[in-house]
C-alpha cells in the first residue's frame, strides 16, 4: 500500500525531526550552532521545558567516586554525637546521594555545608556546634583488592559551625 504524506502530517513530521535534532544536540553535548541572540533564549526555553537538552551520561565516561557526608555534633554539655542524612526510605537515599555528588560544584560547597549544618541544628536543638565532614571513597583495583587493599574514605572537606546565640553574637565559622 502506497502512503503519501499529507501537508499537515508532513509539517508534524518536520517538527518531530527538529525536536529529535535538538535531542541529539543535547545527548551529544553539542551547543546550539549559529543561533542569534534573539532565537537562543527561545530555543533554550523550549529544550528546558521539553527535556530535549537532557544529557545521558550515566556513569560515563568515568564512574564518580562515592561521597559520604557525616556530622559530628557537640551537645550543650560537651557530649559528642554523630549523625548523617541516611533515611529508611531508599527513594530518599538515592536523592540524598545525588545531592552529595553535587557537592563537587565548588561554588555551592560552603552554602551547602551551611544548609546541612542548619538542618542538623534543627534535628538536634541542644547542639551548640556541628562539624560537617565530606569524604570520598578511594577504591582499589580488583588486583589490589585481592592483595589486601580495601576501600578507603578520605576527607575532602570539613567545616565547623557554631549555633548563633540568641544575643547578637554570631560565631558561624567555616573552615574548609
Amino acid at each position: 500500500m502506497r502512503h503519501t504524506l499529507t501537508p499537515g502530517h508532513g509539517l508534524l513530521t518536520g517538527l518531530a525531526a527538529v525536536h529529535l535534532l535538538l535531542v541529539a544536540c543535547g545527548a551529544l553535548h553539542v551547543p546550539f550552532l549559529q543561533l542569534t541572540d534573539t532565537v537562543r533564549p527561545w530555543a533554550q526555553g523550549y529544550v528546558h521545558w521539553t527535556g530535549a537538552s537532557s544529557g545521558f551520561s550515566f556513569f560515563a565516561p568515568g564512574v564518580s567516586p562515592a561521597v559520604r557526608v557525616s556530622f559530628d555534633l557537640e551537645g550543650a554539655s560537651g557530649e559528642q554525637l554523630h549523625d548523617d542524612f541516611r533515611s529508611d526510605n531508599s527513594a530518599v537515599n538515592v536523592r540524598i546521594h545525588s545531592m552529595m555528588l553535587r557537592f563537587g560544584l565548588q561554588e555551592s560547597r560552603d552554602a551547602l555545608a551551611r544548609a546541612w549544618a542548619a538542618a542538623m541544628f534543627g534535628r538536634h536543638p541542644d547542639a551548640r556546634a556541628v562539624t560537617v565532614r565530606v569524604e570520598s571513597l578511594q577504591l582499589p583495583t580488583m588486583e589490589a583488592h585481592l592483595q589486601g587493599s580495601r576501600p578507603l574514605w578520605s576527607e575532602a572537606y570539613r567545616a565547623v559551625f557554631e549555633r548563633r546565640l540568641p544575643a547578637s553574637v554570631s560565631t558561624g565559622e567555616v573552615t574548609p
Binding site: 529529535l20 535531542v23 541529539a24 545527548a27 551529544l28 544529557g55 545521558f56 551520561s57 550515566f58 556513569f59 560515563a60 565516561p61 568515568g62 564512574v63 567516586p65 562515592a66 559520604r68 537515599n93 538515592v94 546521594h97 571513597l137 577504591l139 583495583t141 580488583m142 576501600p151
Partner: peptide, 30 residues
C-alpha cells in the same frame, strides 16, 4: 539516541574500555 549516546560516551572512558567499570559502580556503598 539515548542508548547510543550513553553507550558511546561510556566508550570514551578507560574504565569501560578495560572492563572494570562495574567493579567501581557495584563497590560503591550507595
Amino acid at each position: 539516541l539515548i542508548y547510543l549516546s550513553t553507550g558511546l560516551e561510556k566508550l570514551l572512558g578507560p574504565v569501560w574500555r578495560d572492563g572494570t567499570a562495574l567493579w567501581e559502580v557495584l563497590m560503591q556503598p550507595q
